[in-house]
């Protein structure tokens, strides 16, 4: 879709404000050059735009450095709110693949008016965090503090809870996405070998590169690690039964509701009955019915052996 001149300018303004906000939250100083670099825009355009931003009371100059005013901060937060709400919407209400959430939200963040944002927030049940674990600013501009440090900073044997996953750069995120990690999942660091970090995530041992581990944030788990008896449903062999503990936080939207509706709720007893001639899917006996689930889905269901 072609944007009008005025819209193009507004998009640029909003991106600059977002960049300044990002610099501030990372504790680095923003300059014209950093903005141009981050946004991939020529310095001349930034230089032309800035006086207008200063004039409008959104940005202040401190020497070479650029800082957001209170008004500018509010504007930036509103754009971020739109972005994170839209990502949550994509995750919960559409079948959009994980890798596309960010790209689409980058476009939509400039289109959602504050009123539209509020409606979207209402219809999503006013979520506090987006699917990556980033806090969604409230309509009042408040932001919940976010805890956590990179996974790579923890040592073997520590029990953690994932709080946040970085969605850029895309290649690294796609690695994280493949593991289907999500904020709220419990994991235990097992160790590090040949540049890869081994972790046990809710009963499943997985590996990730150190680059990716850098971009997954976690805190020490207050409630300890997963029990030794915890498994994923996909690990239950035919004929065995297990008790459901819950569904992975990574399983969202209609996929999650469908599983809940079918009776995949904590306490349900599931029995792996038989699998198809090609080895997948597997039929599970659940609350008096027989339900076929693919391996990927069974992997999203946390169970304990009984």
């Amino acid at each position: 879709m072609r944007l009008s001149k005025g819209d193009q300018r507004r998009v640029l303004v909003e991106d600059v404000l977002k960049h300044l906000h990002d610099c501030r939250s990372r504790g680095v100083s923003a300059t014209e050059a950093s903005a141009g670099g981050a946004l991939g825009v020529g310095l001349d355009r930034i230089a032309k735009l800035l006086p207008e931003l200063v004039e409008a009371g959104l940005v202040e100059r401190r020497g070479d450095c650029l800082e957001l005013t209170v008004a500018g901060e509010g504007y930036a937060l509103s754009v971020i709110r739109a972005h994170r709400l839209y990502e949550t919407y994509l995750a919960d209400r559409t079948g959009t693949p994980l890798g596309e959430w960010h790209r689409r939200a980058e476009v939509e963040e400039h289109r959602l008016s504050p009123v539209a944002q509020d409606r979207l927030a209402d219809s999503l049940g006013n979520p506090r965090f987006d699917p990556h674990g980033d806090p969604i600013p409230t309509r009042g501009g408040e932001v919940v503090a976010q805890a956590g440090r990179p996974l790579s900073g923890f040592v073997a044997g520590e029990d953690l809870v994932v709080t946040h996953m970085e969605d850029e750069p895309e290649e690294v995120f796609s690695e994280i996405a493949k593991l289907r990690l999500a904020p709220g999942m419990r994991l235990r660091v097992l160790g590090c070998s040949r540049g890869r970090l081994r972790v046990e995530v809710e009963g499943l041992v997985q590996e990730l590169s150190l680059v990716a581990a850098e971009r997954v944030h976690a805190v020490l788990s207050p409630a300890g690690g997963p029990a030794a008896s915890q498994r994923r449903l996909s690990a239950i062999s035919l004929g065995e039964s297990a008790r459901v503990l819950g569904i992975s936080p990574a399983c969202r939207g209609s996929e999650r509701t469908r599983l809940l509706d079918l009776g995949v709720v904590p306490g349900s007893i599931v029995e792996a009955a038989f699998s198809g001639p090609l080895g997948d899917p597997t039929a599970y006996r659940l609350r008096g019915t027989m339900v076929g689930l693919r391996r990927e889905q069974a992997e999203q269901i946390f169970v304990e052996r009984i």
Binding site: G95, P97, R258, M290, V291, G292
Partner: peptide
Amino acid sequence: RGEASTFSLELP
């Protein structure tokens, strides 16, 4: 575009 999504097939 997209990945194979939800599959929950009831076997009546």
